[in-house]
């Protein structure tokens, strides 16, 4: 199919949306409510584009390309419409960027910068303040919420928990739990996928403060189970301060409560960082060489005395598949026993 975007011809596949076509062509279209993994919602109205021959503006996220369509993504009319939408959003959003955790990676802030919105031209009512801090891992602040619905739809369409939804109507709409009973009393499994997709600072993790520009992201494999979810640990200085799911992996941008929030053990003072050897009834720190020497001596001794069948090994779901493989290899080939098991079998 042929399509003309801003005067340049492109060839796109059938059933492509205008947004997909533009992204493929490297044309940046602003979106606040769009996520490739979700059904188009078309609520933020930032991705509006103009189509030649039609006097109506259409949302590029939900409009499928037609052959020989002529699209304008940054005409004066479109830019003005996007500015107005941002103006309306900012009119109901506290400009607390100076103290907001999300500053620096907030889409609303970025678009306001791009479209030159300094403050709202409306000085009217604001949404009633409403916060839900009942979940142990994250908070919701309705004042900052732009109601893009990403959290609600991720919870419903991808996490399949449907713990949250829209409450109230019109101007008073908020994201809430059934009967406003709070996240802690809802079906929420604290996976935090809502927090991961929130484009602004409405859903934020309850952890150490950091600013985007102070941190770096380190991609790693989640160590909690064998799925191999990819995640980016957010590191400030020498401390891990957060985790974001990566879209490059089997998890496709999702995590569970452990991957998303259970990283605090990394910097925990009780964490064992060196091998410990019990001497005179007390654990003492030792080097890896010392520890391996001790293990080898003990294994050889027990094997000579009682034979290979005196050994049994139990390994952990926290280990990777490769580590588990090597562990059973050690038991079968080196120690010489089949007494090997794994906690995940239970």
């Amino acid at each position: 199919m042929n399509i003309v975007i801003n005067g340049i011809h492109y060839e796109v596949e059938k059933n492509t949306t205008i947004l997909q076509a533009c992204r493929k062509a490297g044309i940046d279209i602003p979106t606040l409510c769009h996520d490739d993994r979700l059904e188009p919602f078309a609520s933020c109205r930032m991705c509006l584009v103009e189509i030649e021959g039609s006097n109506k503006l259409v949302t590029s996220c939900s409009t499928v390309v037609k052959d020989n369509m002529v699209v304008y993504t940054h005409s004066d009319k479109i830019i003005e419409a996007r500015k107005d939408v941002l103006d309306l959003l900012v009119g109901n959003h506290p400009l607390e960027c100076l103290s907001c955790d999300k500053s620096g990676q907030c889409k609303l802030q970025d678009y306001c910068y791009e479209y030159g919105i300094i403050e709202s031209s409306y000085n009217g009512d604001r949404r009633e303040p409403y916060v839900d801090t009942s979940n142990p891992f994250y908070d919701y602040d309705a004042r900052k919420c732009i109601l893009c619905g990403l959290c609600v739809r991720v919870c419903d369409e991808l996490q399949c928990t449907s713990a949250i939804g829209f409450g109230n109507r019109g101007f008073d709409t908020v994201v809430t739990t059934p009967f406003n009973e709070g996240l802690i009393n809802s079906k929420c499994v604290s996976c935090g996928n809502c927090v991961s997709v929130c484009p602004v600072g409405a859903l934020t993790p309850k952890v150490q403060k950091y600013r985007h520009w102070e941190s770096k992201e380190v991609q790693t494999t989640c160590s909690y189970c064998g799925v191999g979810c990819q995640l980016n640990l957010i590191v400030k200085g020498d401390k891990v301060v957060g985790a974001q799911p990566s879209k490059e992996g089997p998890n496709d941008g999702l995590l569970c409560v452990k991957g998303k929030f259970a990283y605090k053990f990394i910097n925990h003072p009780d964490r064992i960082k060196t091998p410990l050897i019990k001497r005179n009834g007390k654990f003492e720190e030792a080097s890896w060489d010392e520890a391996y020497r001790l293990i080898r001596r003990k294994i050889n001794g027990i094997k000579e005395e009682s034979g290979s069948e005196a050994f049994a090994g139990l390994t952990s779901a926290r280990c990777t598949n490769e580590e588990n493989y090597l562990f059973q290899k050690l038991f079968r080939a080196v120690i010489g026993t089949n007494n090997i098991d794994h906690c995940a079998r239970l």
Partner: peptide, 12 residues
């Protein structure tokens, strides 16, 4: 309350 222009705009 779904889309921005209607939710916020009509109020203004």
């Amino acid at each position: 309350g779904k889309c921005v222009p209607c939710r916020e705009g009509t109020k203004r």
